[in-house]
Amino acid sequence: MAERTLTRADLSEAVYQEVGLSRHESAQLVEIVLKQISDALAQGESVKISSFGSFSVRQKGQRIGRNPKTGAVVPIMPRRVLVFRASHVLKNTINKKLSQLDAARPTAPESGGQPA
């Protein structure tokens, strides 16, 4: 599968195509949306986007870690981490589309199969 990576530029372009604002304003709006979400999370607020998923902040307590190279004991301080839970709609859409793609693709050579 030719896997590519979408960036802000692709999101701005989609907003530009879909809503018909200027390219500049579309890019600004994408930025504002991401900032609004980040600001809410930075304040410890969860963000729930229906039919997409929810972002929430989880508090982690202090624990003892180890430097895997040296084996030295390092304390890991209490911290906050971000967790994303995809909605069922998102999970189902991804699985449905990807299984269709898999089905459409010519079958990959089976391991142990006869070489062509």
Binding site: M1, R4, T7, A14, V19, V33, L34, T93, L101
Partner: peptide, 29 residues
């Protein structure tokens, strides 16, 4: 229009993931 902006952003991400693509938003995730 505001509703469409938000909708478009999350739809784009959903579609990209449905193609098996990645979405990389620097600073965000």
């Amino acid at each position: 229009d505001v509703e469409r902006i938000i909708g478009t952003i999350f739809d784009e991400i959903t579609e990209a993931l449905s193609r098996g693509d990645r979405v990389e938003l620097r600073g965000f995730g």
